[in-house]
């Protein structure tokens, strides 16, 4: 695999950074434009999956080991639910984001949306990459003509 697909490898290397940047844009610009945690998570996962497809599972797992991905899957849900529980500690209902800034409710909404969208993004990234690892880890390496 090392000796061919030169164009694919060069293009991938320059694309991966852009894809990750775009994922962050979709994540944090979701308040103003289409997108949010779900889409950003998928795009972020695509960056790693693309790297894995072109360079091989071993290379991508040096950047993002499987045990980190498995922790991410749970971390996102914890961040989301934790935001809700934090709201309860502040004396309001579960997921009542206004409680972050009681004297200016819509500011609290902004931070609440930021936290839960981050949680969604982390879980979606984790799940997509984890499923890809699970599939790719079991696949015998195929040549170009096997398809």
């Amino acid at each position: 695999m090392k000796e061919h697909h030169l164009i694919l490898r060069v293009v991938t290397k320059s694309l991966v950074g852009t894809i990750i940047l775009f994922a962050f844009y979709v994540q944090f610009h979701g308040d103003f434009s289409p997108g949010g945690g779900f889409q950003a998570g998928v795009i972020m996962a695509v960056a790693f999956i693309l790297y894995g497809i072109v360079f091989g599972l071993h290379e991508v797992q040096r950047v993002l080991p499987a045990w980190v991905v498995h922790k991410l899957v749970a971390l996102g849900v914890l961040v989301y639910a934790g935001t809700g529980i934090w709201n309860m500690f502040l004396g309001y209902e579960f997921l009542h984001y206004g409680s972050f800034t009681p004297d200016h409710m819509s500011h609290g909404q902004h931070s609440g949306i930021l936290y839960v969208e981050a949680g969604v993004g982390i879980t979606v990234t984790g799940v997509m990459v984890a499923i890809y690892y699970a599939f790719a880890g079991r696949t015998p390496r195929l040549g170009n003509d096997d398809w």
Binding site: D31, G36, Q109, H110, I113, V116
Partner: peptide, 12 residues
């Protein structure tokens, strides 16, 4: 106070 209503419905 979020311009994208889809986001405010989905997340809040």
């Amino acid at each position: 106070d979020v311009p994208n209503v889809v986001t405010s419905i989905l997340a809040s």
